[in-house]
Amino acid sequence: MKLYLGELEELVLLTVATLGDHAYGVSIQQEIESRCNREISIGALHSTISRLEDKGFLKSWLGGATAERGGRSKRFFELTPSGKKALNETKSLRDELWRLSQLKWSGAK
């Protein structure tokens, strides 16, 4: 079965990829907030992350305890190969559509 990526899912996956070794709940949220100017509740974020884990696009591991979090550990996320593949497929599908469309890409400044 082909797994589709939702818009938020794609955003989260890309953010995780962007953050590299520092992708955990709060950092992902802050990143999305600052980059997209989009408020996303921690609940909604973790729901999406959980779904992505279900789909096998993300994997996670527990980090060590940290002082500023009341001694609680962080759970770090990382893209799996299939997660990367799904992002690639989404991008190529978009590119294809862009190419075929009458729109003109105005490019990033």
Binding site: V26, R69, K74
Partner: peptide, 14 residues
């Protein structure tokens, strides 16, 4: 849910 509680706390401090 240790990590989630940690997230909550971190956000709170922020």
């Amino acid at each position: 849910v240790d990590d989630l509680a940690g997230d909550l706390e971190e956000l709170f401090l922020l």
